[in-house]
């Protein structure tokens, strides 16, 4: 892995009217990594990605994309899947992929050849000469993704790539992203689905309210929360409650509480001594979802749900 940065940005600001959609975002994406930009809806993820790619200009701040401070100059080395999927409905799949490659400097002939190979590899070879309008939404989305990688970009930017896909196509997409990383590409993607980020990301940023609230690895994010303990006594009554930490909450037949600062051993000795016994015990590592909720704040999650 190289320590050079594929993407970097410092203090990016974007205002829409009086609202600061992005409010001082800084980001650094090392080459060769899969980097996630996480955040609730309206957090500023898409605007940030658009500014990084040069689709829109920031009102303040600086950015570098593959060594260029003008992102357009690197556009042939970048692949992009926007959040709002868009293809010409009357184009054939092979042509659509070749067209997207041609926009990035790939000769049409090479583009058509690679399109065929990519479609075969993705299990869509049978639809190569079908028009886009005949495809299902998931298949069309996959075709657009293939169009964004047909020119073998050094940087692949995917905005909410998993939205609208069924589990089978989500799995296909994960494989494709990993294959791009193995080829040497850097992948920068946004999502608000934690499971994908947890499985894929080498590093991530969590954005909320237009600001970066966290930057680090998935483990770093999890480490912002203490471990949890799930304890099940022999007897299922409330008797053990008095000995448990204050934040213990009933969950099924057991209790869930935060790991005490001095560990769990002393607590277990007290519980056994008091005759509650141990029917079950598990130490739970916090999930990225838990970390995300804590970092973003429950209020933001509720706003997002609304």
């Amino acid at each position: 892995m190289s320590s050079a940065l594929a993407v970097s940005a410092a203090n990016l600001v974007k205002r829409f009217g009086d609202r600061r959609a992005v409010d001082g975002v800084s980001i650094a994406v090392p080459q060769g990594l899969i980097y996630g930009v996480l955040g609730p809806n309206g957090a500023g993820k898409t605007t940030t990605l658009r500014m990084l790619l040069g689709i829109i200009e920031p009102d303040e701040g600086d950015r570098m994309l593959l060594g260029h401070d003008r992102p357009r100059e690197a556009s042939d080395r970048v692949g992009y899947l926007p959040e709002e999927r868009g293809l010409y409905p009357n184009m054939k799949c092979r042509e659509a992929i070749a067209f997207m490659g041609a926009l990035r400097g790939l000769p049409w002939k090479t583009g058509r050849k690679r399109a065929g190979e990519l479609l075969d590899a993705a299990g869509l070879g049978h639809a190569a000469d079908d028009k886009i309008r005949k495809l299902s939404k998931g298949m069309a989305q996959l075709v657009q993704l293939l169009g964004s990688v047909v020119h073998e970009p050094e940087l692949l930017v995917l905005d909410e790539p998993f939205s609208g896909l069924d589990p089978v196509n989500q799995e296909r997409l994960e494989l494709l992203i990993r294959a791009q990383q193995q080829r040497g590409a850097t992948i920068l993607f946004s999502t608000h689905v934690m499971a994908h980020a947890e499985r894929l990301c080498d590093r991530l940023s969590i954005i909320a309210g237009g600001k970066v609230q966290f930057e680090g690895t998935v483990n770093d994010a999890r480490a912002t929360l203490p471990f949890k303990v799930y304890y099940t006594p022999h007897h299922h009554g409330e008797a053990a409650r008095a000995l448990l930490p204050a934040d213990a909450e009933r969950d099924g037949e057991g209790w869930r509480f935060t790991m005490p600062n001095d560990g769990v051993e002393a607590l277990l000795v007290r519980l056994i001594g008091a005759g509650h016994g141990i029917s079950g015990l598990s130490i739970e590592r916090p999930s990225l979802h838990d970390a995300f909720v804590r970092i973003v704040g429950r209020d933001a999650i509720r706003e997002d749900a609304a």
Binding site: I55, R72, S75, P82, G86, Y88, L103, R104
Partner: peptide, 17 residues
């Protein structure tokens, strides 16, 4: 309008001035 209705405009705008 075709680009906007098909939402292709962002693909174009990202790749091409």
């Amino acid at each position: 309008a075709e680009e906007r209705s098909n939402k292709v405009i962002e693909v174009l705008a990202a790749a091409v001035p």
